[in-house]
Amino acid sequence: MAALDQITGGRCVKSLADIFSGSNKFVIMKSSHIPGKACMELPGLVCGDLEAPVKKLAVTMTLTECNIELAGATGVDAIIAHHPVVDAANSGGVNMRGYLDLYGLSVFELHEAFHGLHPGIAYIHGHQAFRVDIAYGNIPGNIVYVGRALADVPTIGAILDRLNEFMGMGEEQKMLLTEKNVRDCNEICETNVATGGKLLVGSRENKVGTIIHIFPHTGFTAQHLARIKQEHPEADTVIASISRVREDSELVNKAAELGLNFVVGNSHAMEMLENGLPLAAALHNLLPAVEVVLFRERITSTPLYRVGTTAIRNYADYIAREYLINKARRYE
Results as ranks from 00 to 15, higher is better:
Glu190Met: 15
Glu231Gln: 13
Asn266Val: 07
Val264Ala: 00
Leu251Tyr: 02
Glu205His: 08
Glu297His: 12
Gly197Trp: 06
Leu287Tyr: 10
Arg246His: 13
Ser249Lys: 06
Arg306Val: 06
Leu286Gly: 12
Gly219Gln: 12
Arg244Glu: 13
Pro278Glu: 07
Leu251Gln: 04
Leu260Asn: 03
Ala240Met: 05
Ile228Ser: 05
Ala235Cys: 10
Ala226Gly: 15
Val238Glu: 03
Thr210Gly: 09
Val263His: 01
Asp248Thr: 05
Thr310Glu: 15
Glu247Leu: 03
Arg298Pro: 07
Ala280His: 09
Gly209Val: 11
Val307Thr: 07
Thr309Arg: 07
Ala316Pro: 01
Ile239Asn: 01
Ser267His: 09
Ala289Arg: 08
Tyr305Phe: 05
Glu257Asp: 08
Arg296Thr: 04
Val290Glu: 03
Phe215Ser: 08
Ala289Thr: 10
Val208Cys: 09
Leu260Gly: 03
Val193Arg: 07
Ala222Glu: 15
Gly202Leu: 02
Thr302Gly: 00
Asn253Arg: 14
His224Cys: 12
Ile299His: 11
Ile214Asp: 09
Arg296Lys: 00
Asp248Glu: 11
Ala282Phe: 01
His213Leu: 04
Arg313Pro: 04
Thr195Trp: 04
Asn253Asp: 14
Ala282Pro: 00
Thr195Asp: 11
Leu304Val: 12
Glu257Lys: 02
Ile212Lys: 01
Arg227Phe: 10
Asn266Thr: 12
Asn314Thr: 14
Asn285Met: 08
Val264Leu: 05
Ala194Trp: 07
Ser241Ile: 01
Leu200Ser: 12
Ala222Val: 10
Ser243Asn: 09
Asn261Lys: 09
Glu291Gly: 06
Pro216Val: 08
Leu260Ile: 09
Val264Ile: 03
Val263Met: 02
